[in-house]
Design a protein around this nucleic acid. Structure first.
Lengths: 223, 223
DNA sequence: TAATCATTCAAGCGTTGAATTGAATGATAG
DNA sequence: CTATCATTCAATTCAACGCTTGAATGATTA
């Protein structure tokens, strides 16, 4: 062995960190947190070319963050386990707590307003049972279809304006999206609050909700 | 803003991951987990040149993983908070659970023997109160001096052979070192078990012990 | 104020990683 | 068995990183 075992170990740990060190790969992981996907679907969602996407996925696989299986002609990737999700989340927490730049970007999303504290998933579950809350799923329709919080209404950011009149000014609104990396919910809350509505963001997104073992509704897919 | 806020956020998260993606920086973090240190001390311990060390430290600071303060002429670095430690630990857990290569390296340290499960810190605390265990601190003397588990004997790997006769064959022995990244305890346990002694490794190291709020003994430093 | 010394900056060089293009692989369907 | 198609590999280009050397900074101390 040319290097000491100590360095060899550190290099393995560094390999995992390196896999997380490119925005494109974090974006892929966010998609995979929604559920398993094929290479082409991932390339579409992230805007990468298929070849480039495939290479990034292989780096993630080398770091054991994702695994793959073959389904006919397609290769389907998925997160190896919940640890991958934990790692992404901790990365975000460290960045948000300590990096002024992150604060600045998030503030920009809210047009300078102070965003309210997010609603915890426990809270939302209670409110849902009471029926005292409107839940908005801000993700693209296909992701909504493949699984969403029961009772949530699917709407895109672009259509939000048109939906405003249908919302009662007093009702509490909770918006969610893919997860902590996704900014749709941030933007939705900012837009709703600008119109004087009582909107808050859900802590985490659908993957975290599912990870908690809470109910997820899947639309019968017409395909 | 040239990039979308989404990408900008992901880039910030990636910055944190990138800071963790070099073995040299993981090594620095391991040292800092022991306690705050100056640049020169860190350079000595890690074998880096001072200038190189300084640059790595600045990358860690940019990622908000460490912070620094000035003490006279010296600049003292320390981990920003316990999250940094959590992040390092999760990195290790993912690597150990999923990377065959890590398994292989660790097995090499034990000369192919199966290593026993590590002792939890709770267990050790109980055994220490009973006095039914011998604790070995495998770190360099200066690190032992700056803080160790009460009752632990400090010994280097090199001196372990000479210490063998002083150990009762029946007594349980627990070895620890800097923390999960440190391999001294692994090696010590392997050596002791080869001689038929009942040795186990402590889960985590001194930083984790201290983080639990457990007692740490500091030698009156003669300086 | 000037000297001192730990630390940091700046420039240069070799290496590594990201994205692109085009070809090769390998499993299925006919 | 051959054609097909999603995926992966290989080779290239360009940018960023890591390490070294030597100079600059900036807070103490005399």
């Amino acid at each position: 062995m040319s290097t000491s075992p100590k360095t060899a170990l550190l290099e393995e740990y560094a390999l995992v960190a390196r896999a997380l060190s490119a925005p494109a790969r974090l974006s892929l992981l966010e998609q995979l947190a929604q559920g398993e996907r094929g290479v082409e679907a991932l390339a579409d969602k992230t805007g990468l070319t298929v070849a480039n996407c495939s290479q990034h996925l292989q780096q993630l696989r080398r770091a054991a963050l994702v695994t793959s299986r073959r389904d006919g002609k397609a290769v389907i990737y998925r997160l190896t386990d919940a640890r991958t999700l934990e790692l992404m989340d901790l990365l975000r927490i460290v960045a948000e707590r300590n990096l002024a730049q992150v604060e600045h970007i998030l503030r920009g999303l809210s047009n300078g307003q102070d965003a309210p504290e997010p609603v915890t998933r426990d809270d939302l579950a209670v409110r849902l049972a009471e029926g005292s809350v409107t839940v908005l799923d801000m993700r693209p329709a296909d992701e909504y279809a493949s699984g969403h919080i029961p009772g949530a209404r699917n709407i895109t950011l672009a259509d939000l304006e048109r939906m405003l009149p249908t919302l009662e000014p007093g009702t509490e609104i909770v918006a969610y999206c893919r997860g902590p990396y996704c900014i749709y919910a941030h933007q939705a809350v900012a837009a709703l609050r600008k119109h004087g509505l009582n909107a808050k963001r859900l802590e985490g997104g659908l993957p975290e909700w599912r990870e908690d073992g809470r109910p997820v509704l899947t639309e019968a897919s017409p395909e």
